[in-house]
Amino acid sequence: MKEMVKSEGLTFTYMEETEEGQTGAEMKKALDGVDLSIRKGQMIVILGHNGSGKSTFAKMLNALLKPTSGSLWVDGIDTSDDEMLWNVRQSAGMIFQNPDNQMIASIVEEDVAFGPENLGVDPPLIRQRVDEALEAVGMAAYAKASPAHLSGGQKQRIAIAGILAMKPDLIVLDEPTAMLDPRGRAEVMKTLQKLNKEDNITIVHITHYMEEAAMADYLYVIDQGKVALSGTPREVFSQVERMKELGLDVPPVTELAYRLQDPVMQEKLKARGIEIPGDILTVEEMVEALCPSN
């Protein structure tokens, strides 16, 4: 399978800006030697507490920030290559936290058209792409609506459509659900899963919600600019102690499974023929472990 994102020794340091607009002293190493690779078609979640460097990483994927040292390739393109800047931005679309602050137009379809317009796409083709993108996020009925009358979840779906209309291979989302209510969060997650499964779009999703992280194919936990943990959600969440050290949560059932690993408890359960694995992720799995169906 093809590699969508690859980084080697990726480092980014925020520089103090001096009055002459030149870079001065180093302020903070936001990313410190990150090596990772993301295959095409994967759904990746990046976890980490605020200030861990995960947003910096997201901005680098879209070439909004360039590596201080090390390299980052998106779809084989080196993001520090100035000449390929617009190609990188076209293939790695980006969604931000606040849905209001990323909408340019006052009409849904005009906003979705903004990206392809910037790319210089032919007008009839833009029309077609806009219609397809709105269809894909289930917002076709709102093409002529004003974003002011939409819910947070709907606005984020419009933002996703705006990226889809640019025909990206990768969508990077920086805490897209942080400002939404549970209903809005569910809408956005459903949309992302559909795009990933049906349209084979690679997703890099940054979030604080563990139930969203559990849906990923692969997780990276970033702490102090470094990859602290990585693996499938099952592998990562089963390290309950380590996750808590990093200031992160695990789903309550995973915590329960972990606490049930206590030897005394295990023995009593074993006597009844019950075995609880330490890497349970969902309520269903726990029910099945405690009350096996046959």
């Binding site: 507490h49 605020n50 805490e175 400002m179 992160l248």
Partner: peptide, 8 residues
């Protein structure tokens, strides 16, 4: 707690 990480 809107927008804060789990520790916050």
């Amino acid at each position: 707690t809107a927008g804060l990480d789990p520790r916050g």
